[in-house]
Each structure stands twice: as C-alpha cells, then as structure tokens.
C-alpha cells in the first residue's frame, strides 16, 4: 500500500510541475491543486498507515495498534486551506481573463513594457 501511494504521490508531483510550467493560467491553477493533493497524501503516508480500527477518544483499549489521528487532522486543515486558496485562485483567474482578455501568460510580457 505504501509503495503504491508513494508512486501515486510521485506522479502527482510530476504532473503538478508539468502543469505549473505551462503557459495557460488554468493549467497553472490545476498544477497548484495537484501539488496540494500530493502533499496531503505525503503527510498521510508519512504519518504511518495502519490497518486497524479507527481511533476513538476515551477508549484506552484501542490506543495500541491503531492509526495516529494527528496526520489526518493536519490533512483536514490543509484541505480546508487549499479549498480557500483554490477559490481565490479561480477568482483571480476570472479577473485576469476579464481585464486582459487572455489566459496565456506569455502574451502579458509585451504588455509589461508598454
């Protein structure tokens, strides 16, 4: 399971980098999304995967041999933050498109020097 997830994470990072390097701003945002998902999975794997019952507070008998809940809490926080950032990035893209009429980042270079 870890090996599989590690490969998935690697592919996600690679795809994210590829998309980040594209000129289109839509792909750029998708690239950022891929990055954040890969990172979330990375935390999950790094926190240790244990196949057992879920952790419940207050029941001492379950504390051995069950998954550490903290990485999942971290991921939850990261997902929420990522959600906010995606919303912002999409809004930014929309404004960008409206005010420049293009979604190609390279076309802006000429505009900068005017």
């Amino acid at each position: 399971m870890e090996t599989l997830l590690a490969i998935v994470i690697g592919i996600l990072y690679a795809a994210g980098v590829y998309l980040l390097l594209r000129r289109s701003i839509v792909k750029l945002i998708l690239g950022i999304l891929f990055f954040s998902h890969a990172t979330n999975l990375l935390i999950l794997v790094a926190g240790g995967l244990v196949k057992a019952q879920p952790q419940f507070a207050g029941d001492a008998s379950l504390t051995i041999n069950s998954t550490d809940p903290l990485p999942q809490a971290l991921i939850l926080t990261a997902i929420v933050i990522g959600f906010g950032i995606t919303a912002f990035a999409l809004a930014l893209m929309y404004r960008f498109y409206k005010s420049t009429g293009t979604e190609d980042l390279d076309e802006l270079k000429e505009g900068e020097h005017k």
Binding site: L20, L28, I32, L42, T100, L105, E112
Partner: peptide, 29 residues
C-alpha cells in the same frame, strides 16, 4: 499590471507553502 504581478506572487508562494507542508509531514512521520 497588478494582476500580472499577482499571478507570479501567488504561484510562487503557494509552491513554497507546499514545500513547507511536505517538510512538516515528513518530520512528523
């Protein structure tokens, strides 16, 4: 002009955040 600057700023900072988060995850592991 502001939006062009912002796109670069936002992207680079998000990438750095992801590096940071990955570092935290590994360290916690």
């Amino acid at each position: 002009k502001q939006l062009t600057g912002a796109v670069k700023y936002v992207t680079l900072n998000l990438v750095s955040s992801m590096f940071f988060l990955a570092g935290i995850g590994l360290l916690y592991g």
